[in-house]
């Protein structure tokens, strides 16, 4: 693979759910060793963008390429890690290790059970997020922040080249946030590509290379600087619009 091929290349995505437009002309590129933040308010389409590029939500227009391959033909899922919002998890009494080891499945053949090597990967991932001694705990007994760290460990066990995360630091205490940001920065320097939805930049600010801000399903900024405010309506009328009788009638 040529070095300049983006790990993730989404262009001109249009997504509508139940007739409502959710994303309008959204693009997202992530290269190796690059961390891109997706910012924006509630309902701005951040999570939808991530879920669309992963193929979890169908898009009506545009294109998604992962590692240079069209999404429909992409099968190398062991190169992709995903950290969803933890509220979607359905566990009764699975242990933390069991949840984390499912991250290794993308490397497995269909009837394969975890090997000694897999267990070593799981232990290493738990070490990385500071949950070394929580492996045998029931997942439901963890605090919100620890659950989030476990989900990050689950994504890291597959040793992904592209990591896609949906508010990974939500509910994580400040001390661990700094630790996780440091870890992600380290992995980025080793060549990991990151796309991360954030509510606020917080301790991730030092790790991030680019910021994409979404507002109402559109990209309002895509810069190397911080976010701008999201205007409720795109300013299409002239600033003197309130004086214009025709515009007034139209409204």
């Amino acid at each position: 693979m040529a070095d300049n091929t983006p790990l993730l290349d989404a262009q001109g995505l249009y997504v509508s759910l139940g007739g409502l437009p959710i994303l309008r002309d959204v693009g997202l590129q992530v290269h190796s060793g690059e961390a891109v933040a997706i910012l924006g308010g509630n309902g701005s389409g951040k999570s939808t963008t991530l879920r669309t590029v992963l193929g979890l939500i169908p898009f009506q227009e545009g294109s998604v390429r992962l590692f240079g391959t069209e999404l429909a033909n992409f099968h190398a899922w062991d190169r992709v890690g995903y950290v969803p919002q933890h509220s979607s998890l359905n566990v009764s009494n699975a242990t933390v290790r069991e949840i984390v080891s499912s991250g290794r499945l993308s490397h497995h053949r269909v009837f394969q059970w975890p090997s000694r090597q897999d267990r070593a990967h799981v232990t290493h991932a738990l070490d990385l997020v500071g949950l070394t001694d929580r492996g045998r705990w029931p997942f439901v007994d963890l605090s919100g922040g620890q659950k989030q760290r476990a989900l990050i460990a689950r994504a890291l066990t597959s040793e992904p080249e592209l990591l896609i995360m949906d508010e990974p630091l939500a509910g994580v205490d400040l001390h661990s946030q700094a630790g996780l940001a440091g870890l992600l920065g380290q992995l980025r320097s080793d060549g990991l590509g990151l796309a991360v939805v954030l509510h606020e930049q917080g301790p991730m600010a030092d790790v991030l290379d680019r910021w994409v801000t979404l507002c109402d399903g559109r990209i309002v900024t895509s810069e190397t600087q911080g976010a701008t405010d999201c205007a409720p309506e795109p300013a299409k009328t002239s600033s003197m619009g309130w004086l214009d009788p025709v515009a007034g009638v139209r409204r």
């Binding site: 979890l56 099968h75 899922w77 995903y82 979607s88 359905n90 499945l105 497995h108 597959s158």
Partner: peptide, 22 residues
């Protein structure tokens, strides 16, 4: 039993299982 790890992953988190290529 043979498909246990996969069936478990699907039961826990369908979206994540999809991203694993399951």
């Amino acid at each position: 039993i043979g498909l246990g790890p996969r069936l478990f992953a699907v039961a826990v988190d369908e979206d994540y299982a999809r991203v694993l290529g399951i």
